[in-house]
Each structure stands twice: as structure tokens, then as C-alpha cells.
Design a protein around this nucleic acid. Structure first.
Length: 761
DNA sequence: GAGCAACGTGTTTTT
DNA sequence: CACGTTGCTC
């Protein structure tokens, strides 16, 4: 069968496995998406399931689109109406179709993360809660974490008064959302889960319908998503889960890697298939990745291999400063481009966004086209969100979040005092702000009434207009366009508003609307009372669920800059991993727990496996961060990569970080192979002039001078109380300089150099 | 009610 | 350093 041509044995086994639960451990670059889509096509082509009986779920819209594209290419079927989408997108479909049973208005709106935060702030203000004691962000995290565990307020255990208050606020937040007819992201999932578990008729319909459930990036699922899948598969559907525990990098937002092991135990005991042949990277790169990740415990276990040969060694560079590191990157990029490589095939990766600035500056000065990923997406721009807020109010005037957003934007003389009055009345009556308008006295009340009338008028005037004309009308009638016309940097914002009109036209014209909603109609379930949402409601849901491109477009051949997280799933001919320093990568905030460090290591694993042919690793002795110079040691991850795969462009010095054994710290001279335990005392400083070889001794790190004594990272010091220790980090300069010292058994202390009685040994 | 200055605060991110 | 938020003044 042509479909199965060119699959390797494990891929073939995975694609054609019997109709039963299975777990595919797919290493980086092992053909994961291909296996997933080919299995779907194969199931359909062999008549084992109709397109209608398949459910495929991913985490990103991009992955869902990719899947649809590939299936269309493999099979001559209409993918429209197939249930392929993100967890949130599919839940949205289900909730729209069964909004009554889910207890939601048909026009329910979706709050994105920032909408949710402003809703929470408004709640705290209204309830008179001290937002210093209960920070909105913390409450948001508390609520979302609870929902992702499947817990409603009544089910959250509160041990102390603080937590009781948090739970209380959670309950109030829920009531507020319900009253306003809005749902946040985790609510989409939880509400959908509850809908299915409580309503036997609907549950059985979908359990019966979906015979095969395929899950992408299974390592990123949270507990609720796992339960959701289990529930849907409860009627005998086969779950085909694909993932890579080594690439689980989203634990910080609730992903539970444990789901993979649990799934194996619960469903797929002897049906685990490993895809270990890597088609992406050369041998040295894979060796580095394999050796590195072996330092993690609790892995399901997997070793990537390739038949592409070793390729070039991984190049390692130590810079004096972040600026110099950037300069070096520029030079390497110039020579890569000189060799004929495309700029878009070169990626510069970093752990945190703050690191991009220096790199951007250097690229800009050098006149090298580049593109930074991350940052604001289209539907997150303030002018676009303003326009969407007007549209939301037309659809549902009781959406208080949208109301507050634009009630006085553009300014129409409605101030804080008036809005407080209005909020008080609304709270007293338990109604929305919109419903409270008529009771607000005075001129403020008048202005509010005018605003309410504006919304009503816009709704009336756009009746029966096609979607994009509605949007066009609203950006004008709201005064948004006029407002930005008067602003000096408004031209781009107006562009974006016009672009929103285009987006609406594209959404209506394409399969967007039909795809996300009409396709949801469960024909076999007329008694459920299905209604079609309006095109506007569908468009608003689309805007919330798909925030748009992170940038991209414009087609120019440009170097790609992004965080390691953003690089997951991508690949490049040449990759730079910059800022490989202790405290940065691994990030200091993750070092408190073993699990945090292991996630950082997986992150490094992801970074390394992005490269096809050439990989560069770099770190710097000093780095500007938060306005002060930091002195970092090179990342431990550099030392977890086999020396035989590396080529040092600068002399290799010392060890990556303080030894775990107290006092076991030193630096080897350049040229030594530095076998474990072989450490020698530091030599004298020599000026460091770049990448030329031949300095047998030089500084591992820049130092700080205090009272005529020089301190630097890696140095042994003695303290009258804590005894002997090693400096493992420095921040600040001059009188503000602080050092972190590892005193072995006495622990690690942070000391101010100007005050502490530290003596160099 | 609107605009500006001081303050403080800083991972990673998709839906 | 560079952002967003708060608090203050006109």
C-alpha cells in the first residue's frame, strides 16, 4: 500500500497496530507527525473507521492545521467536519453544540489569559479584598490549577484561613463568570468534561461515535485532559497516544509527564512502540542529546540513533560578555551565509526573552535580517482587543470585562467615579454593568446611557450584514479609527484594525466557520436541541482560541530568534544555543527542586535536537541582566555533553560549577582533558583576547575588586563563621556587589562583599 | 478626567 | 535595562 511505503519497521508497526490503546514513544525527529497522520489515513483507507469516527487532538492550532494538510494530501477526502483540533477548540465545539446542557448561553464568550486577569482584578475590587494580600496573578494561578485538577470550589481542600479565602474568591469568580456568560480557558475543558460525565445521552453519543482517538504531544497533557480522553474513550474507542517524555517542558503550566507512565500502566502495557531512528540530526548532535538526557531519572527510556554519520563536532565558545557573545554569533552567521546557507535555516535560541535584546542589537548593527518569535500576537494587540470588546458587547452586553475595556475608550467622559457607582449598583442588584446603566444618576449616568445606546445601535445597524462588514462598521462607529488617527503612533494600529476586517472576511470565506462549528453538529442527536452560533460568535471564539501568528510572514530570508520553548517542534540546519550559564540555563528559579532541574535538562535536550547539521553552544563570563552585571559560571549542561563530540573554539577552562564536595573546586589549565576529580588550582590572570589558542591560564570569570582584594567566581574563600567555601556566583558591582558562596556543609550563603569578612584563600 | 513621573519588578507559554 | 503599574498633579 502506497501509504505505508518508506516507513521504517517501528513506524510501520505503530501505524498498523491493532485497534486498541497504544503508546508511541517518539523521539525528536523520528517522524512523529508522519506516523500520526499516516495512521489516520490508513484507518480510513482500510475501512476500519470513517472520517466521522476519528478524533485527533493536539495542543496548538498549528499542529492541528498541519495534520489536516497532511491528511488531505494522503487521501481524497473532505477533511471539513472532521474532529481534528486542539483540546480547547474541540471543547468549544462541544459546548457550543450543547450549550444548554452545559449551562451556558449560546453566545458565551471566551476569556483569554489577560481578560481573565482583568476579570479577577475587577472581582477583588468589587469584593473589597486587599489585592496586596491576595495578588490577582496568584489567584488566577490558584483558580486555573484547581480547574486543571478538575476541582470546583467546593472540592478544593483549604487547610488555613488564607486558602479558605482563596477558595471563597474562586467561588465568587465562578459566579461572576456565570453571570456574565464567559468562560476562561481551563473552564472550556472542565465544563466539557462535566457535560460529558453528567449527561449520559450526550456522553454515549460521542463515545459511540469516536472509535479512534489520536493524541499528539501526549507528554503535555494535564490531569484533566487525561480524564477527558478517558471519558471519551469509555465506549470502547482506541486511544493512540504519541509523545516524548524527554520533551516535556511545560510542567510549569500543569503538564503532567506522569500521564505517559500512567497511560502505559492503565491501557497500553505491552503496546508501547519506540521510534528511535532520528532523521534530522548528525551523530555528534544526537550523542550529545542522548548523553545529556541520561542524567534524568524516571525516564521511559529511549536512545536516538542515526545512519547519517557523525557529522561535524559541536562548536563551543566562551565569551567575555553578552555583547561579545552576540558579536561572535554574528561572525559565525556571516560565514554560514557565506557558505551559501539560508538565513532562515539558522536559529539563535535562548532560555529567556530578555536575552534577545543584545542579539537583536548586534544583528541590527550588522545589517543581518532577523525575525524574533514571541511577543504580542495579532489578536492580543490592544487595538484589536478593543475592537473585539465592542463586538463582544454587541453579541452579549452583559460581558462586563468587555464593557470595562471600552466603556471609556475612546474617551467619552466616563470616569472612575461613575464606573464605581455603576459597579456598586450592579453588585447590589446582582446584574451586569449594562443592566445597571439606567440607575446611575447624573451626568455620568447620561454618558453611560449614551454608550449603551451606541452598542445597541451598532448591533441594530449591522443586522444581516456579512461578518467583515460588521467589523468594518464597528471600528468606525466606535470611534477607534478616529482615535488612532489623532495619535502619533496610530497608523500601525489602524492598519491592524483594517487587518481585523480582512481576518473576518477570510474567516467567513474559508472553512473557518463551517469547520469549527457547523461540523460540530451531531446529526444523530436531534433531541439535544442544537443551534448554530452566529458567525460573529464563531469569529470571536476563533479570535480567543487562535491568537494568531507570533510573527513570521513577510517571506524575507531571515535569521530566526526564539526561546527554546518556542523552538520545540522546529528544526534548522544550524542552531546556536546561547547563554549556557548557571542561573540562566538551567534557570536559577528551577534549581530548588530536582524536578525543576530535570525539566531544564529536557529543555536543553529539546534545544540540542533542533539542529540538523551544525550546533553551536556558547556562554559568557558576564551578562547584563535587570540592569546589573552578573557573573555566571558556565552551565553544567555543557559538561554533560561528551567531550568527544565537542570542539572548543576558546580554551576549555575548569569545571562548570562548584563541585558537590566542599572545597573540591578549581580550574584546569586549557588543554587538559579534565577528567572527573582532576582539578588544579587557578593560575594567574592573563588578558583574554578572543578565540586564539595558547593561553594556558586565564580567568574563568571576571572578578570584582573590594578593598584591594579581588573576588571572582570559582575562587576559594574563608569566612570566620562559615569556614572555607567557594564563590559560585556574583551580582552587582562596587559597594553593591554580592557573592554566593558554597560553604559545603554550612550550605550556600549570599553575602555582601563590602560587609562580609571574606578572605581569599 | 487625563496625562505624566516615580516606583518596582523581572522564566519558560498555548489555549 | 525596560517594561507595566500606581500615584500624583493640572
Amino acid at each position: 500500500m502506497a501509504l505505508l511505503d518508506n516507513l521504517n519497521p517501528p513506524q510501520l508497526a505503530a501505524v498498523t497496530i491493532e485497534s486498541c490503546h497504544a503508546l508511541v514513544l517518539a523521539g525528536a525527529g523520528s517522524g512523529k507527525t508522519r506516523v500520526l497522520t499516516t495512521r489516520m489515513a490508513w484507518l480510513i483507507q482500510t475501512g476500519q473507521v470513517s472520517p466521522h469516527g476519528l478524533l485527533a487532538v493536539t495542543f496548538t492550532n498549528k499542529a492541528a492545521r498541519e495534520m489536516l494538510t497532511r491528511i488531505s494530501a494522503m487521501l481524497p477526502i473532505n477533511t471539513r467536519g472532521m474532529w481534528i483540533g486542539t483540546f480547547h477548540g474541540l471543547c468549544n465545539r462541544l459546548l457550543r453544540a450543547h450549550h444548554r446542557d452545559a449551562g451556558l448561553p449560546q453566545t458565551f464568550q471566551i476569556l483569554d489569559t489577560s481578560d481573565q486577569l482583568s476579570a479577577i482584578k475587577r472581582l477583588l475590587k468589587g469584593a473589597g479584598v486587599d489585592d496586596e494580600k491576595y495578588p490577582p496573578r496568584q489567584l488566577q494561578h490558584f483558580i486555573n490549577a484547581a480547574k486543571e485538577e478538575g476541582l470546583r470550589p467546593a472540592e478544593v481542600e483549604a487547610y488555613d484561613s488564607y486558602n479558605r479565602q482563596m477558595v471563597e474568591l474562586y467561588a465568587m469568580y465562578e459566579a461572576q463568570c456565570q453571570r456574565e456568560g464567559v468562560v476562561d480557558f481551563p473552564e472550556l475543558l472542565l465544563r466539557c468534561y462535566e457535560l460529558l460525565s453528567r449527561n449520559a445521552l450526550i456522553r454515549e453519543h460521542y463515545q459511540h461515535r469516536f472509535r479512534h482517538i489520536l493524541v499528539d504531544e501526549f507528554q503535555d497533557t494535564n490531569r484533566l485532559q487525561y480524564r477527558w480522553l478517558k471519558l471519551l474513550a469509555g465506549g470502547g474507542a482506541a486511544i493512540f497516544a504519541v509523545g516524548d517524555d524527554d520533551q516535556s517542558i511545560y510542567a510549569f503550566r500543569g503538564a503532567n509527564v506522569g500521564n505517559m507512565a500512567e497511560f502505559e500502566r492503565e491501557f497500553a502495557h505491552d503496546r508501547v512502540i519506540r521510534l528511535e531512528q532520528n532523521y534530522r540530526s548528525h551523530g555528534h548532535i544526537l550523542d550529545a542529546a542522548n548523553t545529556l538526557i541520561r542524567n534524568n531519572s524516571n525516564r521511559l527510556g529511549k536512545n536516538l540513533w542515526t545512519d547519517r554519520g557523525h557529522g561535524e563536532p559541536i562548536r563551543v565558545y566562551e565569551a567575555l560578555s553578552d555583547a561579545q557573545e552576540a558579536q561572535w554569533v554574528i561572525e559565525e552567521i556571516r560565514s554560514l551565509v557565506g557558505e551559501g546557507r539560508l538565513r532562515r535555516e539558522i536559529a539563535i535560541l535562548y532560555r529567556s526573552n530578555a536575552q534577545s535584546r543584545v542579539l537583536e542589537h548586534a544583528l541590527f548593527s550588522a545589517g543581518i535580517p532577523y525575525k524574533v518569535y514571541g511577543g504580542l500576537r495579532f489578536f492580543e494587540r490592544q487595538e484589536v482587543k478593543h475592537a473585539l470588546a465592542y463586538l463582544r458587547l454587541m453579541e452579549n452586553p452583559h460581558d462586563d470585562t468587555a464593557w470595562m475595556r471600552v466603556v471609556n475608550f475612546p474617551a467619552r467622559g466616563i470616569g472612575a467615579r461613575t464606573l464605581e457607582q455603576q459597579a456598586d449598583i450592579a453588585r447590589l442588584n446582582g446584574c451586569s454593568l449594562y443592566a445597571a446603566v439606567s440607575q446611575v444618576p447624573g451626568r455620568g449616568g447620561n454618558n453611560l446611557a449614551q454608550f449603551a445606546a451606541l452598542i445597541d445601535r451598532m448591533r441594530f445597524e449591522t443586522q444581516n450584514l456579512p461578518l467583515h462588514e460588521i467589523v468594518d462598521h464597528v471600528i468606525e462607529a466606535s470611534g477607534l479609527v478616529q482615535h488612532y488617527l489623532n495619535e502619533k503612533e496610530g497608523a500601525e494600529r489602524i492598519e491592524n484594525l483594517r487587518e481585523l476586517v480582512n481576518a473576518a472576511a477570510a474567516f467567513a470565506a474559508e472553512d473557518g466557520y463551517a469547520q469549527t462549528d457547523a461540523g460540530a453538529l451531531p446529526q444523530a442527536l436531534p433531541e439535544a436541541g442544537i443551534e448554530l452560533p452566529s458567525p460573529l460568535a464563531a469569529f470571536l471564539a476563533h479570535a480567543a482560541l487562535e491568537a494568531g501568528d507570533n510573527q513570521a510572514s513577510d517571506g524575507q530570508d531571515a535569521v530566526q530568534l526564539m526561546t527554546v520553548h518556542a523552538a520545540k517542534g522546529l528544526e534548522f540546519e544550524a542552531v546556536f544555543i546561547t547563554g549556557l550559564e548557571e542561573g540562566l540555563f538551567p534557570h536559577e528559579n528551577s534549581l530548588l527542586e530536582q524536578s525543576g532541574l530535570e525539566e531544564e535538562r529536557r529543555l536543553m535536550y529539546v534545544a540540542v535536537t533542533r539542529a540538523r547539521e551544525r550546533l553551536y553552544l556558547s556562554f559568557s563570563q558576564t551578562r547584563m541582566l535587570h540592569g546589573q552585571t552578573r557573573y555566571n559560571m558556565r552551565s553544567r549542561f555543557l559538561d554533560e555533553v561528551p567531550e568527544s563530540s565537542l570542539k572548543w573554539l576558546t580554551p576549555r577552562n575548569g569545571r562548570a560549577r562548584t563541585a558537590d564536595v566542599a572545597g573540591g573546586w578549581g580550574r584546569t589549565a586549557w588543554g587538559e582533558e579534565n577528567p572527573a576529580g582532576s582539578v588544579s588550582r587557578a593560575g594567574k590572570d592573563a588578558p583574554y583576547l578572543g578565540s586564539s589558542e595558547g593561553y594556558s591560564n586565564r580567568r574563568t570569570s571576571a572578578g570584582v575588586e573590594v578593598n584591594g582584594r579581588t573576588f571572582r567566581v570559582g575562587q576559594s574563600v574563608v569566612h570566620p563563621k562559615f569556614g572555607e567555601g567557594v564563590i559560585i556566583g556574583m551580582t552587582g558591582n562596587g559597594p553593591d556587589a554580592q557573592v554566593q558562596v558554597n560553604f559545603g556543609s554550612a550550605g550556600t550563603k549570599t553575602l555582601a562583599l563590602a560587609v562580609a569578612k571574606l578572605e581569599p584563600v
